[in-house]
């Protein structure tokens, strides 16, 4: 069961969310205790060559010219599907408020290569509404296919901060994510300028004010702008994804990365197929994210 929609623009989604937030100051849409059963699905005309090039300019790496690289990076595919996720989450029957939503984890199975200008069908549905210590979390499943063949699927877990929809004990029982952290040996150091959020926004279309500038972030209660979570995912994966796809990866976000700032980064080989990633604050020993990339069996 799926509702066909037009490919939404993020701007319209955000405007809708802002309007909703004014209408209802409630942290949750009180009466809704369940996720919409219906998926949304849309036709995507294909990721434009222009956007591919913008992405490449931001993250570097070889050209997607069919010679150096052809298969698009997973995060760019995510970017294509993101408005569909947002459209789902901004529906009236979605129980968690869009503004203030926190991206907790993202995992992707990239089954087959996705190419520029390849028409795609993008489906998004919500699952698994469950308590979190700081609110309520839900999974957004995205499936991207072309000509009936599944190319790419992901599970994005979001937290509706402050939306306590379960009993107090149910929320409190959820284990805290914070653990002791000892930094591994770094293999890279990312230097992120104050404009990193704006640059990623320009590529992804995600002009969420919290990422765009210090001033706009302050309006949302953050002292400084923070980088998009998926920016970190993109840098973590840049140059490491196989051209033939078949890989999977995941990222769990912890402390947000304030801009401008630096991220110490380590890539560690767990076994022949698995790379583990860690990003942390180089001075404060606070972890920003952990990630993993599993390569296909060769």
């Amino acid at each position: 069961m799926a509702q066909k929609i037009e490919l939404p623009t993020l701007g319209s989604v955000y405007r809708q969310a802002a309007a909703d937030a004014v209408k209802s100051k409630l942290s949750s849409n009180g009466s809704l205790k369940a996720l919409p059963k219906e998926a949304v699905v849309t036709e995507h005309p294909g990721i434009s060559a222009e956007q591919v090039e913008q992405y490449r300019e931001l993250f570097g790496g070889e050209a997607f010219d069919g010679v150096h690289r052809q298969s698009l990076p997973s995060v760019l595919v995510h970017i294509a599907a993101f408005p569909v996720q947002m459209a789902l989450m901004s529906r009236k029957d979605f129980p968690l408020p869009l503004l203030g939503m926190v991206h907790l984890t993202n995992s992707v199975e990239h089954h087959k290569p996705v190419y520029a200008e390849q028409p795609l069908e993008i489906l998004a549905r919500a699952e698994n509404l469950r308590p979190h210590r700081k609110g309520t979390q839900a999974d957004i499943i995205v499936e991207i296919s072309a000509e009936g063949q599944l190319l790419w699927s992901s599970v994005s877990t979001y937290l509706g901060r402050g939306a306590y929809m379960f009993s107090r004990s149910e929320h409190e029982e959820v284990a805290s994510g914070s653990r002791e952290f000892s930094a591994p040996s770094k293999t890279a150091l990312w230097t992120l300028g104050a404009d990193t959020g704006r640059k990623y926004a320009a590529v992804s279309g995600d002009y969420n004010p919290i990422h765009v500038s210090g001033l706009s972030a302050k309006l949302l209660g953050q002292p400084r702008a923070i980088v998009h979570g998926m920016y970190s995912a993109a840098r973590m994966l840049e140059g490491r994804e196989p051209e033939s796809a078949g890989h999977s990866w995941s990222i769990s976000f912890e402390a947000p990365v304030a801009l401008p700032g630096r991220v110490a980064f380590a890539a560690e080989e767990k076994d022949e197929r698995t790379l583990a990633f860690t990003g942390w604050h180089p001075k404060k020993q606070r972890r920003h994210f952990t990630g993993e990339l599993k390569l296909p069996q060769s």
Binding site: G60, T187, A188, L189, W190, T191, G239
Partner: peptide, 10 residues
């Protein structure tokens, strides 16, 4: 180093 952002000394 462009690919790691680390200085040679690091």
């Amino acid at each position: 180093e462009p690919r790691t952002g680390l200085s040679m000394g690091e």
